[in-house]
């Protein structure tokens, strides 16, 4: 039983304060329960949460949830029910509600560093103009999409990139002046390609898709998006 005072913080903040690794008993604080108990205290800013944690129960629950989902979803178009099945990274991020403790974080990043592939020809920079088109396009991988149409990266859904596109989201940080700020070194170039290809190799449980690993973008498309961020001529760096 853990008492925790939540002061209208972001989920991650709450997590940081109540998570500690106890051997054998993985701690799984449920922010959802915050909402459940919050009802009793209505609109007060401080909500006292009693969180009971039992990792075995959570594991059993995760298994039951997967079974329920497998019985409740059906394959449609390119989106097959296999997509419900998780790889280790997805499983761990779900288990820790996207806020794993340090040891798990390190493990997730190591798994994905191993999975990370760079182009065989060693060239990482494509055309920023093509990259801009990919950044604008949100097409791809939905059951309503034609699988023959190349997918987009939909970067603007979450990031600011240029000064001219005003319709951008904020789930990710602004990438305006990305290369200009970081410099156009080989190390940054390699990091940029790698981050687009497999974000989990650098930042465990990032919200950003693993565009290479997930088969969303091709190697050539990732080169183009890398150029959008790292070509000094790109509007990102103007």
């Amino acid at each position: 039983m853990i008492n925790c005072t939540m002061m209208n913080k972001k989920v991650s903040g709450v997590f940081g304060t109540i998570f500690f690794a106890v051997s054998g008993i993985g701690l799984l604080a449920t922010t959802a329960i915050a909402a459940e108990t919050a009802v009793k205290t209505d609109n007060k800013m401080n909500t006292k949460i009693d969180v009971k944690i039992d990792s075995r129960k959570e594991t059993a629950l995760a298994k039951a949830a997967l079974e329920m989902m497998q019985a409740s979803f059906k394959t449609r178009g390119q989106a097959s029910v296999d997509r419900l099945q998780q790889d280790e990274t997805q499983g761990l991020c779900s288990q820790y509600q996207d806020n794993p403790p340090k040891a798990v974080r390190v493990r997730i990043e190591a798994i994905n560093q191993k999975l990370l592939k760079y182009p065989a020809d060693g060239k990482l920079l494509g055309s920023w103009k093509e990259g801009e088109k990919i950044a604008q396009s949100g097409v791809g991988k939905q059951f309503s999409d034609n699988p023959e149409t190349p997918a987009g990266g939909n970067c603007y859904a979450c990031h600011q990139l240029t000064k001219t596109e005003l319709s951008y989201g904020n789930i990710g940080p602004s990438l305006y002046n990305f290369g200009k700020v970081r410099g156009y070194s080989e190390a940054i170039l390699k990091y940029t390609y790698g981050k687009i290809s497999n974000s989990e190799a650098f930042s465990a449980c990032s919200n950003m898709p693993r565009f290479g690993h997930g088969g969303i973008l091709t190697e050539q498309q990732i080169k183009h998006v890398t150029a959008l961020l790292m070509d000094p001529e790109s509007p990102v760096n103007k």
Binding site: A32, L61, L66, M68, D98, Y156, G215, I216
Partner: peptide
């Protein structure tokens, strides 16, 4: 079970409900 589903990541994009609906002040475009 609903809470577990909310955090269940999957698919090519690794998305869960929480990817978009787990923090304050977020926007898609």
């Amino acid at each position: 079970l609903g809470r577990k589903m909310f955090f269940h990541r999957g698919g090519p994009h690794d998305f869960s409900c929480a990817s978009c609906h787990g923090a304050d002040g977020q926007r898609i475009r």
